[in-house]
């Protein structure tokens, strides 16, 4: 018994481990104060009624959750989050794949094209969102003007002014930011596939489409999984684009789960509702990030 505790002590408290704890201590302290404690506090808050200053007033059990789940707007926000994330990731994925294929063709100026494709990702998200606000401007914006003059769309909507078009316009900006990530990751993957595979496939009479599906896609399968998960999390979490473009309006039409946390708290001053939204969002994110972590570790171990 004494031996067992001694060896356990040695395992936990030897010079090497001690150094490790010292080196990790600053990170741990900051994370506990500004991340773990706040998460715990959000959980606590979700069981309390709060006042307009976000102080806890009294314990109400699950009442806040029941409140939120009976509110139609909660389910609308959840549905919007689902549409926002799934279609957003799908479009980013497809566009990224097309661009990666295009960049994988050898021609002069390919490097410059690659650099140009990165710009939407490299750019600052808040600033990009502001620029898009000007682009979408119903009266003076160059988007509608260009669509009309070029004959592509004679009567385009006022974008951010009406519910459906605002949702699509916000989604497009989020998609636009996320495309280069997929393109670059897929391109990097494609370039690591040995050229001989394509050559022998060609000898066997396989065309470009056939070799894309039987060599390229399997060759970057792991990258596809990990980048899709990552992009799904980012897309789901995109607060900045919506807040800057529409502040979740008009008439809540662009309010998704992540924005409703902020709107509940700092616009409605219902911090208890915001806490419930945070808890729900936290749980969803945790599930997805556990999946991501598993993929990542499996890949690292290979």
């Amino acid at each position: 018994m004494a031996d067992a505790t001694a060896s356990l002590r040695k395992k936990l408290w030897n010079p090497e481990a001690r150094l490790a704890y010292v080196l990790l201590a600053p990170t741990a302290v900051f994370l506990i104060a500004f991340m773990f404690y706040p998460i715990v506090y959000v959980f606590v808050m979700s069981f309390f009624r709060t006042n307009k200053l976000s102080d806890l007033v009294r314990f109400v059990g699950l009442a806040n959750f029941i409140d939120r789940f009976h509110d139609q707007e909660f389910w609308w926000a959840a549905l919007r989050s689902l549409i926002w994330t799934s279609s957003g990731v799908a479009v980013k994925f497809l566009a990224g794949m097309v661009i990666a294929v295009l960049l994988n063709v050898r021609y002069r100026g390919r490097k410059a094209a690659r650099m140009a494709f990165i710009i939407p990702w490299a750019s600052s998200v808040p600033i990009s969102a502001l620029l898009w606000q000007w682009v979408y401007h119903p009266e003076f914006g160059l988007l509608n003007h260009t669509l009309q003059v070029s004959g592509l769309w004679a009567n385009p909507p006022g974008w951010l002014g009406a519910p459906l078009s605002a949702f699509i316009a916000c989604m497009w900006v989020d998609i636009w930011i996320g495309i280069p990530f997929f393109a670059l990751v897929f391109l990097a993957g494609m370039q690591s596939i040995p050229q001989e595979l394509y050559e022998s496939a060609h000898m066997d009479g396989a065309g470009p489409i056939r070799s894309f599906f039987s060599i390229t896609i399997p060759g970057i399968r792991e990258l596809i999984q990990i980048s899709t998960l990552l992009s799904a999390i980012w897309t789901f979490n995109d607060f900045n684009v919506i807040y800057i473009l529409t502040r979740a309006g008009p008439a809540n039409s662009t309010n998704i789960l992540i924005t409703s946390v902020y709107m509940n708290a700092f616009v409605d001053l219902r911090f208890d509702w915001a806490a419930v939204q945070s808890v729900v969002t936290f749980l969803i994110l945790t599930i997805v990030s556990v999946i991501y972590a598993r993929f990542y570790f499996r890949q690292e171990n290979n």
């Binding site: 490790a20 998460i39 506090y41 959000v42 992540i258 911090f271 990030s289 556990v290 570790f297």
Partner: peptide
Amino acid sequence: LRFVGRKVAMYLLLMIEMFSPVIVIISLFK
């Protein structure tokens, strides 16, 4: 370094990376 909790620390870091600051903004305010 080898120490107890290394795997846990790695796992936690990877998960934290996924968190949006929005979900803790109300308590961060406090």
